[in-house]
Design a protein around this nucleic acid. Structure first.
Length: 551
RNA sequence: GCGCCCGUAGCUCAAUGGAUAGAGCAUCAGUCUUCGGAACUGACGGUUGGGGGUUCGAAUCCCUCCGGGCGUGCCA
């Protein structure tokens, strides 16, 4: 619709110039906006304001000239000039009524648009080290990444969700040795493998060790050192990944792939990118280590191979981006990172450029970390202290409320969350307002069935009450919201839209009797309500939440 | 010190450079004999941290100051 209107205004400008109503100038791109204030119409256009200088005319006069030369098809009810030169467009009520049928026909697919054109996008998120259960801190990452993936999918991209497993390196070795100590302890040989000084203290390792001991007995107690560490590394990783997978599923999140960092070394990718950088002269040796050169004087160098020969995490990152963009040919790679990693953005892109890749294919979504409090007192999230797990929070306040709470704020907002307050207030969570709208509609359909009212073959042009039209407008907005969320990679728009849609429904419900004594009107309203149900359900599902039939 | 992010109503947060800066919660005042009251309607509430600048137009862009967060490792 926006494109159609832009086209109309574009040709109106041409006509106006031919008629001599406007001087000659290049016609700019026309953007159609949606006014914040609904009394300004359904759509608005600001070209006249921008043309004031080039046309040397008052914007209001330009707008008037455009309107005078504009074609007005049936779906346009009114076009007018307002304020300093806005062109406000109001659509015909009949057009709105007909759109209800389009929504009904689309069903689950309503809200899907073709912005992406099937381009392949990978969204990599969470990717927390597999050394412990997911913390609540990872929750924001999880919810953002998953909703982003859903939105991009709805916008017509071919999306894959990926979890990057840091299954090599120092932290994993400490994890493996911590796991081994717990295992030995359980079997009564605590002295054999003393707990590492900076080991992982959580109870989950004890539970995992109990499982292992129950499965294999003392078979892993007397292995040669190398094999021993490797064994606990392997066993610990497999168990930890299973737990992380289960934690993610508590929020309804499933990954298409779990990508192993180790595989980058095993399949030669790391060696390949190393050779590429080497032959391009991007590497330098200093203090016994290998560095990736900064691009300028004040751009610092970064170590990729330590002086003891072990590659750094950054080395893996370089191989990984090559794998994403070259080996697996994703058109676009999206990373969801906590703001504490923002220092890595520039060097990752620089490394990609050094490999000859277009860094605009890489997007890093940085979100501010969630600070936790309980009853006004800060809760530390470090690995040595007792951290708050995602599971605890979800079990306390529910998956839907947790998701909604974390999704409502834009990634840039730094939030401190009081867990005590969150639990206390979880009943006020706006998600229930939205879900209640959906359940209420489901209930309406049960009622309608009893009364023998059906939305089939409804005469939609009967819909003309202001509350009906407002509800239709809100329903139709879903497509714009998906587009905007996909374009700005900001799924929090969905949460606000969901509430506005629910408000339009509740308000309609209050002022318009659906199942009443006028059968034709009842049928038309039922069709509208069905469209509202579709829009609510699709929005909830995009956010990863349930759309209950009753609650 | 330098870099990035943030500062909007009492609280939590929105607002593709556009019109009178909006929601939820809280507070106050109303609505219902019928489809689910987890609802609806309204009121109160603002120098968008301060000060400059760009623009026809700035919460939004630029500069500066104040305040907060995060970075600035041969950690991840």
């Amino acid at each position: 619709m926006k494109e159609k209107l832009a086209q109309l205004i574009h040709s109106a400008l041409e006509t106006a110039q031919q008629q001599g109503d406007l001087p000659a100038f290049d016609i700019p791109d026309i953007t159609i906006e949606r006014p914040k204030d609904p009394t300004h119409g359904d759509f608005a256009c600001t070209v006249a304001l921008g043309l004031a200088r080039v046309a040397r005319m008052a914007p209001a006069k330009i707008a008037a000239a455009i309107i005078a030369n504009m074609e007005k098809p049936d779906f346009v009810a009114d076009v007018s000039v307002a304020g300093p030169g806005f062109i406000n467009i109001r659509l015909a009520t009949a057009w709105f009524a007909e759109q209800v049928q389009r929504v009904l026909n689309a069903g689950d697919a309503f809200g899907r648009i073709n912005r992406g054109g099937g381009r392949r996008v990978q969204v990599e998120f969470i990717s927390a080290n597999p050394t412990g259960p997911l913390t609540f801190g990872s929750g924001r990452n999880a919810v953002l990444g998953d909703a982003l993936a859903s939105v991009l999918d709805a916008a017509g991209y071919a999306v894959e969700r990926e979890y990057y497993l840091n299954d090599v390196g120092n932290q994993m070795n400490i994890f493996a040795r911590s796991f081994r100590s717990r295992y030995a302890e359980i079997l009564g040989y605590a002295d054999r493998y003393p707990f590492p000084e900076d080991g992982y203290p959580g109870d989950y390792l004890i539970e995992m060790a109990q499982e292992l001991a129950a499965e294999v007995g003392d078979a892993y107690l007397n292995l040669p050192e190398d094999e021993s560490v490797a064994t606990f590394h392997r066993e610990g990783l497999a168990r930890m990944v299973a737990r992380i997978k289960a934690d993610a599923e508590l929020l309804g999140i499933r990954f298409d792939s779990w990508f192993s960092e180790a595989s980058l070394y095993e399949d030669g990718t790391y060696q390949k990118v190393y050779d590429m950088l080497q032959s391009n002269g991007q590497l330098l040796e200093k203090d016994g280590a290998i560095w990736f050169k900064g691009e300028s004087e004040d751009d610092k160098d970064n170590v990729i191979v330590r002086s003891d020969g072990r590659p750094t995490y950054f080395a893996s990152d370089i191989a990984y981006i090559y794998n994403k963009l070259v080996t697996r040919k994703f058109d676009r790679a999206i990373y969801v990172w906590g703001a504490d990693h923002h220092g890595h953005v520039a060097r990752l892109k620089a490394a990609a450029r050094a490999l000859g890749l277009d860094d605009s294919r890489i997007t890093i979504i940085l979100y501010q970390l969630v600070a936790l409090e309980r009853d006004g007192k800060p809760v530390r999230m470090g690995k040595r202290s007792k951290f708050v797990t995602l599971k605890e929070v979800v079990e306390e306040i529910g998956a839907d409320a947790t998701r909604f709470m974390l999704l409502t704020r834009s990634a840039d907002s730094q939030m401190t969350l009081d867990l005590g307050l969150a639990v206390k207030q979880s009943n006020d969570n706006p998600v229930y307002y939205v879900q209640y709208g959906h359940a209420r509609i489901a209930s309406l359909f049960r009622k309608a069935e009893e009364e023998g009212v059906s939305p089939v073959n409804a005469k939609l042009t009967l819909l003309k009450h202001p509350a009906e039209l407002e509800l239709i407008r809100q329903i139709l907005r879903l497509e714009e919201v998906v587009e905007r969320a996909a374009e700005t990679l900001a799924p929090h728009h969905l949460t606000y839209y969901a509430q506005e849609l629910a408000t339009a429904f509740h308000s309609f419900y209050h002022s318009c009797r659906v199942v009443g004594d006028n059968p034709a009107l009842s049928s038309a309203r039922l069709a509208l309500v069905q469209a509202a149900k579709i829009a609510l359900a699709n929005t909830l599902h995009l956010m990863g939440m349930s759309a209950p039939e009753e609650m």
